[in-house]
Design a protein around this nucleic acid. Structure first.
Length: 582
RNA sequence: GCGCCUGUAGCUCAACCGGACAGAGCAUCGGCCUUCUAAGCCGAGGGUUGCAGGUUCGAGUCCUGCCAGGCGCGCCA
């Protein structure tokens, strides 16, 4: 049942609009700011000109013409607004029926029609720490991937590792001087990072070190077997360390090929840029001017340095081309922060190449950079970044303490959780706090890392969402089944305001997912789920479910069953584990 | 100097790409567990949306200028 379309069809003639305007009219319907104003509203300002009447008059006239039917319960004018009340039993039965018929399918839409999206996220640098800041790209990317799949896209997840570049020169330099086999075996990432830092610090006092590091990297590029073997080993050990974190977070990728893998294809594309006349020499370097196409003053896209070495911009160009040839993507998304200029340069350069070579499909236009705010204040007092695994550990431990304490205060209020169960719940709750914190504001806003804020379990937090889910779980543990059959019969029994607001909110799920997907904004889903839980808890505190009589109990179970299904689905999209008890 | 982003309650953030009296959480204060998990619920206080103009029926939202902060600015990736 598409309520907006139905209403729009009824309103079109009264507004003297042609039938093909039905869709846009449906889109003009909004939720009133407060439930007292009704369930849907139409602001009438826009029609004043063509109808040559005041918005107030139009609203009043529409209210008179909109007779109640199977969807509409009534309509009143409130100044320039037409407020519409819906037929609650009918809408309730329809919404609950949609959810309960196939909870996994509810909220799915086929925006993508099977098109492939290449999604580039996480992308840590080998031999550099995987700190809390990387969580943003990882989490954001993982959620976008699930959202895109939910909306009918096929997603190719690419972890474009930073496994190439002068930093390896530093690490290899340090290894050759101070390398300690035992320390490497013991903890590869930590040790490689310390080697890198040590060499880098030495280079600040002694420029010769930097030169030697460059030289080592040059030998790596030329394929020196010993250096290459070292590089391969460091890469593998680092990746194994990253994999522990990914496993813990439930994140996986389809490819871990990084900058090194694309390296052989860099020369050819640079030559294409030259042949097409798009790249020009400038101050000894090879660049593509992009200010003209971007429309503002911006540095050119540099493909080759004056010493002849290729740049990472050139690698990104080659990589984008490779991605298109392999996947024919409908979108190529880079989840990366603070690199807006870089991606603007790369995409613009590719666009120029597309024009110069006359591509049939200008796929450069399908490349997009999804940026996000900076994480501030995540350094320890020693000035080092906070490592993600430490944050995860702390989150888990704190969750366990809180749970133990609460259970001690109110023993009969908490289901028993022992040993492995408690471990599992603590890990899930700690992660929920972290992951939710990350999406509890719009992605572009900067985040202040603060232990007490991040690891909060009350209010608008991940654990609150899990708690709501677990509360519903408690009810079903006592009774067992979800009623689904005779919805038309039991829906009219749900007549209080709290139940109705829940139904209305459940109805908005698919729209929310679509918006979140189109805007690349997981926050919108998080915000939706928070509002949903808020409604659930208000309902929960005011009304009983079990023991309210055969009909009403079944009706409320259906409502809560549908709510829990939507909540669980939304949480999984966010990478948060729905818990049946906590 | 050039460019991008951001200024909303004491703090952290919303406001569905211009709509009804700007809403939540935290913190503070006051209520609610013999009822399905109190990690919850209900209530109170708290605002000239950085400042000044402009656009129109209507601006936190769009335009211009200023103020404040963050981040970038061809040979690091």
């Amino acid at each position: 049942m598409d309520i907006e379309l139905h209403i729009a069809r009824r309103l079109c003639p009264a507004l003297e609009l042609p039938p093909d305007q039905t869709g846009t009219l449906a889109g003009a319907l909004v939720r009133p700011p407060t439930p007292a104003h009704g369930d849907l509203a139409l602001p009438c300002f826009g029609f004043a000109r063509s109808l040559r009447r005041s918005p107030q008059q139009i609203a009043a006239s529409l209210a008179g013409k909109l007779e109640p039917d199977e969807v509409i319960a009534g309509a009143e004018a409130a100044g320039p607004y037409l407020n519409i009340r819906l037929n609650r039993p009918a809408v309730t039965a329809s919404v609950l029926g949609d959810v309960l018929a196939d909870p996994g399918a509810y909220g799915r839409r086929d925006l993508g029609r099977g098109g492939v999206v290449v999604l580039d996220f996480s992308a840590p640098n080998i031999a550099k720490p995987f700190h809390f800041g990387h969580l943003r790209s990882t989490n954001l990317g993982a959620i976008l991937g699930r959202l895109l799949e939910h909306m009918g896209y096929r997603v190719f997840r690419k972890n474009y590792l930073g496994d190439w570049g002068t930093q390896f020169g530093f690490v290899i330099y340090a290894w050759q001087r101070w390398g300690d086999e035992w320390a490497l075996e013991k903890g590869a990432i930590d040790y490689l990072v310390s080697l890198y830092i040590r060499a880098y610090q030495e280079s600040e006092g002694d420029p010769g070190v930097r030169e030697q590091a460059r030289e080592l990297f040059r030998r790596l590029e030329q394929g020196d077997p010993d250096i290459r073997a070292l590089w391969a080993r460091f890469r593998e050990l680092s990746l194994a360390g990253f994999m522990d974190t990914y496993r813990r977070l439930g994140v996986s990728f389809d490819s871990y090929d990084g900058e090194a893998a694309i390296n052989p294809q860099v020369r050819p594309i640079i030559e294409r840029f030259q042949r097409a006349g798009v790249a020009v020499q400038s101050e000894g370097a090879l660049v593509v001017e992009v200010s003209d196409v971007i429309g503002r003053e911006i540095a050119p896209c540099m493909l080759q340095k004056s010493d002849g070495a290729s740049t990472y911009a050139a690698r990104d160009c080659a990589e984008a081309l490779d991605r298109f040839e392999r996947h024919g993507f409908v979108a190529n998304i880079y989840v990366a922060s603070r690199q807006e200029d870089h991606f603007a340069q790369v995409f613009a350069a590719l666009g120029k190449l597309a024009e110069a070579e006359g591509w049939r499909e200008n796929w450069a236009q399908r490349c997009e950079n999804i940026s996000f705010g900076f994480v501030r204040g995540m350094s320890t007092r020693k000035g080092e970044a906070v490592w993600l695994s430490d944050v995860l550990d702390e989150a888990r431990d704190r969750a366990r303490r809180v749970r133990t304490q609460k259970a001690a205060q109110n023993p009969q209020g908490f289901p028993e959780l022992l040993g492995a169960d408690l471990d599992e719940v603590s890990e899930a709750v700690g992660q929920a706090a972290l992951l939710y914190f990350d999406v509890s504001s719009r992605r572009m806003s900067d985040i202040s890392f603060d232990w007490n804020t991040v690891l909060q379990f009350e209010g608008n937090t991940g654990p609150y969402l899990q708690y709501t889910h677990a509360r519903i779980g408690g009810i079903f543990r006592k009774t067992g089944q979800v009623a689904s059959g005779d919805l038309a019969e039991i829906a009219p029994l749900l007549e209080n305001e709290e139940e109705w607001q829940l139904v209305l909110h459940l109805r908005a799920y698919a729209d929310t997912l679509e918006r979140a997907c189109v805007h690349r904004e997981p926050f919108e889903l998080a915000n939706y789920l928070y509002a949903l839980c808020s409604l659930v808890n208000t309902f929960y505190n005011r009304h009983k479910v079990l023991g309210t009589g055969p009909g009403l109990e079944r009706a409320r179970l259906a409502l809560l069953g549908a709510t829990q299904a939507v909540l669980a689905g939304g949480l999984r999209l966010l990478g948060i584990r729905p818990l049946d008890r906590m």
